[in-house]
Structure formats: C-alpha cells, structure tokens
Design a binder for these strands. Structure first.
Lengths: 190, 190
DNA sequence: ATTATAAAGTGATGTATGTCACATTTTTAT
DNA sequence: ATAAAAATGTGACATACATCACTTTATAAT
C-alpha cells in the first residue's frame, strides 16, 4: 500500500511538487478501493461519489444505446483518472457505466475532499487545472480523429499511440472505442 | 471598452469572485484585439501567442485535410475561449486554423501572463481549473454524440443546444462541425 | 442597382461501413 | 481436463452517407 501512495505522489508531483506536510494532507483525502474483473465502478442512474485514480488495472467507460449496443468513451489504466465527471461534478445520477476489464485498484477522491484540497493546497488546484487542460486537448484530438479519419486510420493511430493498450483489450472493445463494428475492424488488417 | 472589461470580469466572477485589487491585476494581463470577417486569428504552422476570449463576434476552428476539405472542431462566440490550445500550451506551431465568420473582438491572454496570473491570484487558477473541467465534460458529450448518434440526431440536438448559433452559421459549416457533407445535411429536414 | 460570389437544394450513382448469420478459435470457469 | 462462454473471422447483403454535377436562391461587393 505504501508504494501505491508513492505512485500517486509521484503522479501529482510531475506537475506540482509538494512538501511532505502538504503531501500528508493530500494523501488523507483519498481512500482505497478494489474491484474484480466485470464489477462495476459506476452504474447508470446511480450517484457518483468520487472520481478515481487507477493504481492498477483496466476499465472501460461506456453507454448502452437503445439497441443494446455498447459505445466506449474511455479506457482507463494505471495512472489514469476516471469517473462520470458530468455526474460527479454536479452530483446527479450517472449517464455512463464504468466497469473493470481487469481486476483493478483505485484511489477514490470525493467531491468535498477535492474541493477542500483545492482550497487548502493551491498547488493541487494547479495540478487539476493542468490535468484538465491536457485532457481537454486530448479530447479535441479524438474529435478531430473522428471527424477526419477513416476507421482504418483511426485504428492504426490508436496502435501507434497506445500499443500496450491493444494487448490488453479485446478487439471488439477497441472497435467500439473507434466508432465501428467489430466486423469492420476485423476486416481492416487483412 | 470599459463595458468589455466589465463583461470579462463578470465572466470570471461567475466562477471566482475577485476583489477590486485582484481584478485590476487580472485586467492588465489581457490585451485587446479586433479582426474583420474572413481574417485569421490563428494559422496552421504559425506559433500561437495567446488564448482568446471572444468579446463579440463568431469564429471557427478547423483543419483542412489532404483533399482540401474543412473539418470544424469548434465554433466560438461571445464569452467563449478559443485558441489552438495544444500549440499554445506547448508553444509549438499550430495544427489548426481559426478565422472569423463575423467581425470579431477579443481579449488576448499570453501564456506567460496566464501562468503569472495563476501564480499571483489563486482564484484565477481555480477559474481555469473549473473552466477546463467543464470544457472536458462538454467534449466528452460531443464524442458520445459522434459515436452513438446519426447525422440527423446530431443536427437536431445541435439545434436544441445552440439555437442561436444556427442562425449565424451557414449550414455548410454546421455540416462540417457535425461530421457530414452539406448535401447530407440538406437532405435531412425535407 | 447590378454583378459576382457564396450558400443551398436535388438527382444519379458510388462506397465505406453496418447487419445478420454462422464457423472457428481462444479464454474462462468449474 | 472439460465444458461453457467469449472473441474473432468471414460471406452475403443492406444502408447511411459521400461524391459529382447541375440548378436555384441568397448574400456580398463595386
């Protein structure tokens, strides 16, 4: 467990170095949680108590449409933040599902703790500011990818960008993330 | 001009109320700029000195693909922030174009001023944190829309969400924003 | 006002991707 | 180890949307 906290501290300090005293305050705002493969971190229509930092494991964030088809918004693995941020931020019922593709472990940060943290430790406000900004930029790039690229280009770029992810995720889920059917993805490479 | 500054102050204070003294510091970090319709705010391959808050007007952020087709990432109107954030943040050449659909006026914030602002006025760090976070959530919703909805659904939802925008933007540009051709958009309603 | 330019509509046709069905391979659970 | 479940591949066919070509309508420039 000690090493998990060290990993989180390192993650934060890549953006905002902290004193030991500050870190002590930060660390106590997080709680630990673990889930097995196939278990849900967040379910649609339920409230979302926390946002989550992935210590270990792999998750998918998705919706189910009216025809029962799954559409994947995000994969989250080690050192990723994940939640239904819309629901979390406004403390309203989730519109998304998040469940575990692998056994997973997290640090959980509740909304009141995050805001307390930002009030007490300005460096943490800065950390979240930078993180959100990078996240925003990454999503803009994904939108451009969806607007401009063919399924094949999107797949090849995903392989380039996250080669390690490909190994851990069934192609059917990658297809869903890329916005195509598994059949189409299957026919691309041949 | 005085009223422009008041509008910006109001915009910031919807998230982070400031003292008069703080506001004085904030205000001097911005510079004013105006452009006519069809003029470029940002051009591909050029450096991006600032991010921009739109006082008045309307702009589009887009790329041109290898076949010369335009793909619109964002429309920015009154009270929107816009820039090539990826290029701005890393001070590298732009990959995007931004030009004016209408005569427009902006407040410009240079990177060094933004960071100075965040260091001097923690409330501003918080302002940018919240803004980025909301922006992130909005982009997630756009991605879900692209993954799950038909062209017609995306168009109808855009009309619901930004009815005033529709009036100001040629349908051909809306089509590009929605990820379809103008011909397809034209055939939806009839 | 008149002309030039851009936006918008529409028909004919092409294509990438979706859908459905079924076989094969791989992974998971007992 | 064995059976069950999930993932993957592939053929036949359907469809949403793209492309190209041309006309009509609206907007902008002199």
């Amino acid at each position: 467990m000690e090493e998990y906290y060290l990993a989180l501290r390192k993650h934060i300090e890549e953006i905002s170095p902290l004193t030991d005293q500050e870190w002590e305050y930060v660390a106590q705002c997080f709680t630990y949680k673990t889930l097995k493969k196939h278990q849900f971190l967040i379910q649609k229509d339920e409230l979302v108590p926390s946002e989550y930092w992935v210590i270990k494991g792999l998750l998918k964030t998705y919706t189910i449409d009216s025809e029962g088809k799954e559409h994947i918004l995000q994969f989250a693995m080690e050192q990723y933040w994940t939640s239904d941020f819309q629901a979390f931020q406004n403390q309203i019922p989730a519109t998304l599902f998040i469940d575990c593709i692998e056994d997973s472990e997290f640090f959980c940060l509740r909304l009141e703790n995050r805001e307390r943290l930002c009030q007490e430790i300005p460096k943490m406000t800065n950390f979240f500011r930078i993180k959100s900004h990078y996240g925003y930029i990454a999503l803009q790039q994904r939108i451009m990818s969806l607007l401009t690229e063919t399924a094949e280009e999107r797949y090849n770029n995903l392989i380039k960008k996250l080669p390690h992810l490909i190994q851990r995720v069934p192609k059917k889920l990658l297809a869903s993330y890329l916005g195509v059917t598994r059949e189409t993805l299957s026919r691309l490479k041949g």
